[in-house]
Amino acid sequence: MAEYPAWDQDEARSIVAGFAHLEGAALPILHALQATFGYVDPKAVALISDALNLSRAEVHGTISFYHDFKTAPQPARVVKLCRAEACQALGCEALVDHLERDYGITVDGHAGAVAVETVYCLGNCALGPSALIDGELVGRIDADRLAELCHGAHA
């Protein structure tokens, strides 16, 4: 689980300036901000807009279009649970039910130090159900292992 520094407007301005010369710089800037701080603070919209001569709506639209850009600090653990057809056939929906019923963890929401998000295909279909836990692919995940990983974030 990564630890990120608090949002720093001066550091963000420096990151924006470092990529502003690139053609199509918006995505590299957004990725760099998220890699540095763990999210893209809404204050970055004005910085990027000014640096790239884009409207704030264009910058905001880019951030909101891509699901992986976050606009607030994220929980300590992020679980991306595959809910595509192959993983459904192998029981992922029972995992979702188990988390919600037994642990009060809702998918596509977060509870305390864990966020569980739906994704559609992690490319690990033969080993489903699959999850991406803090960026690490886990195949054949079962309810106990998933609960352990989610519960471990609460500690």
Rank of each mutant, 00 (worst) to 15 (best):
E3P: 02
E3G: 11
P5H: 03
W7N: 01
W7Q: 03
Q9T: 13
Q9S: 12
D10P: 01
D10N: 13
E11V: 15
E11W: 14
A12I: 07
R13G: 02
S14V: 10
S14H: 14
I15M: 10
G18R: 13
A20D: 02
L22R: 13
L22I: 09
E23G: 08
G24S: 08
A26P: 03
L27C: 02
I29N: 04
I29P: 04
H31N: 14
A35R: 09
A35E: 08
F37T: 11
G38V: 00
D41W: 01
K43R: 13
A44H: 03
A44F: 01
V45T: 13
A51Y: 09
L52W: 07
L52I: 12
L52M: 10
S55Y: 10
S55G: 12
S55W: 08
S55Q: 10
R56P: 08
R56S: 14
A57V: 15
A57E: 15
A57W: 14
A57I: 14
V59L: 11
H60S: 14
H60N: 13
G61C: 11
T62G: 11
T62S: 11
I63G: 06
S64W: 14
S64A: 14
F65D: 14
F65E: 15
Y66P: 01
Y66E: 08
H67R: 10
D68G: 05
K70H: 13
K70I: 07
T71M: 15
T71W: 08
T71G: 04
Q74L: 06
P75G: 04
A76R: 12
R77Y: 01
V78P: 01
V78R: 06
V78N: 00
K80R: 13
L81K: 00
C82Y: 06
R83H: 11
A86S: 14
Q88W: 14
Q88F: 15
A89Y: 10
L90F: 05
G91S: 02
C92K: 05
C92W: 03
C92Y: 02
C92G: 03
A94C: 03
A94K: 13
D97R: 08
H98S: 10
H98G: 07
E100V: 07
D102T: 13
D102L: 10
D102I: 11
I105L: 07
T106C: 13
T106R: 15
T106G: 14
D108G: 12
G109L: 09
H110C: 10
G112L: 07
V114A: 08
V114Y: 03
V116I: 10
E117H: 09
T118M: 05
V119L: 06
L122G: 02
N124M: 01
C125I: 05
C125G: 06
A126W: 06
G128L: 00
G128D: 01
P129K: 01
P129V: 04
S130K: 02
A131V: 04
A131G: 00
I133Q: 00
D134Q: 07
G135K: 04
E136L: 00
E136V: 01
R140D: 01
I141H: 00
D142I: 03
D142R: 06
D142C: 03
R145F: 02
R145N: 05
A147D: 12
E148Y: 01
L149P: 02
